[in-house]
Design a protein around this nucleic acid. Structure first.
Lengths: 197, 197, 197, 197
DNA sequence: GATGAATGAGTATTCATTCAT
DNA sequence: AATGAATGAATACTCATTCAT
């Protein structure tokens, strides 16, 4: 019976990859990631068969991390607008608290290495968020659009807001408010809202 | 007195780069681009000192191409909503008509090779679009936000819509309508809605 | 724990570099050197970070090799003239026995890649020879000149003699005798001559 | 009848090559030399078929220049020692007055591009110097050595002295005196001289 | 499993030389 | 002849991956 794989080493590599990719992009050498993780060159390939697999797994972990952060302490019995606002705030807090995770994720999102399976798994992992979104847009102007499309639009708004905040941290509050307002209007535009009142 | 530099060769390289990068990403070898353009690999460096300069110039040309397409036949005396809708439609048509330009542009947009100067020039080139946006959001809920931030949000919606359309071309019309509606609500709906009540 | 770096491979590269540079000059491709050494071109860079470092190390090894050969079996209790003659003979024997080392060394000596540190280390390594020279020129006409300058003159005579011998091996003995005589006169003859009168 | 080659352009190239090679070595691009000469890339090849031919011709011109300088105002009726001293002084003056010529010449001397014919022509050009040397060594200890060999030894001493002077210009006088003394002892050692007196 | 040496395919850029103008 | 664009062979170095220890 040989030495078992160490969960610690795996995490060290994932975490090093986050930092290195945030700093130097997807072209960062695996050797650099290994060194940053404090493991040898060769060990990295024990834990991740290829660089591409490392990238895919890292993407999924970061996505999951972000998704979990977004749903943290969700006030399940609040109204849907407040729930969505809670998620929005969590999301921004995560991105500003872990800028390296956010940067790495942004790089990975455009990587040609991500497989269809990874994209599928990532979508599955977002199910919690999607459910909230589904309720938020009910009876709104996007009620009849494919949920995936709506999720995409909303995500794009969030990402853009995050970018803006990271670029000008001083404007965190105003950007956050404006971004959330925009999102809410996309999903549940004012006239409908007024009628509902 | 000697053979002049040929605008044709330059265009051939730019156009080849668009195709090759769309197909194989930013890591595409300069030799592949040169071959696709029908010139020697040395010639590529006569027209573009470095690969990085090629990328920057290509980005600016594609951005300009897209901007010009968006403003084509703008109905200057129509109301602002119709003008914006015209631009939106043009944009989607450009993206679906020249998917390679769009793909290449998307790749370039996240390239670490783009210089600050390129980003500046690109922003300058978008001034026409920004002006329309400025008028569209006047008196709307985004009236007091930094224009750059608003432009970013709106661009994000457009890009996401384009992605969705490229993925499901059959849904062009419905995606286009839904995307434009979302954008309009981001910019201008709330007050109008209230007034409408 | 892993395969250790092999001294043998390193020597193989050094030795191949000697041969290849002797034959084709400093512009010899690293790939050629690697192939001649029987290692992959990548391996060469495991042992020598850059071509320039390879050149510097090769220079020092050849210099050390030559210096050691020159001092081999030095008759420490012989008079200084005989000691110097012993060194001279050793030097010529080394150059004629290992013409490739000598050729490579000659090329390297004029290389712009040699660093100041290399020149310093090389000078340090020649300390044994310098000491003999210091004693040989004591009370001679060069007694008051900077030792470095005298070393240079004497080295120039030796190198020229070696060149002549390599060009006309048949004249080894007469060239050697004439060269040594010249050197001795440079260092020590005038006063002796006057005394002799 | 087409435009004749211009002697001026040729000189400009030769002179530019001297400067560029002194500064950047033999690997200097022909394009750099052409630009420094104020002519086009292509023109250089009108005047010199290949880079190698340029190097060979440059070598011969510099050698001739140096030789002419050495023999300038030779006091033909002075005794041979004074004649030789005059040559020696001229030589050092030339080297210190035109350090770029000297540097370029030093680089060229070790170039693998120099042909046998060039070396022969160069030797022919040194005939004037050789003649003086022949007389200087008559009855001396080198009287029976091949003149070429003696010329080589003497040249080596001169070159080394020049190097030392260029490195420490303050020591011009003492180095010059010591170097000449060494040369004279090589050719016409003191004891012989004393006997002659 | 852990290590780091070994491998060799891959790539931007340079440069002597040629050639169209 | 003069020019400078066109060419393509040449080359140092990188890096994902494999493998001996």
């Amino acid at each position: 019976m040989s030495r078992p794989r160490s969960q610690e080493r795996r995490s060290a590599i994932i975490s090093a990859a986050t930092r290195v990719i945030a700093a130097r992009g997807l072209a960062a050498p695996t050797a650099t990631i290994a060194k940053e993780a404090g493991v040898s060159n060769g060990s990295l390939f024990v834990y991740f068969e290829t660089k591409s697999k490392l990238l895919n797994e890292l993407y999924l972990e970061l996505k999951a991390d972000m998704g979990a952060a977004a749903l943290d302490r969700l006030p399940s019995d609040a109204d849907i607008r407040n729930q969505l606002h809670h998620v929005w705030t969590n999301w921004l807090r995560w991105a500003t608290s872990f800028p390296e995770k956010r940067r790495a994720l942004a790089q990975l999102s455009v990587s040609e290495d991500l497989t269809a399976e990874t994209h599928q798994l990532s979508a599955d992992g977002m199910a919690g968020l999607a459910e909230i979104l589904r309720r938020a847009r009910a009876d709104g102007p996007m009620a009849d659009e494919p949920l995936g499309f709506v999720l995409q639009l909303v995500t794009a708004l969030a990402e853009s807001t995050i970018d803006a905040v990271l670029r000008e941290p001083a404007n965190l509050d105003s950007h956050s408010r404006a971004g959330f307002g925009a999102m809410w209007r996309v999903l549940a535009s004012a006239d409908v809202a007024v009628i509902n009142v």
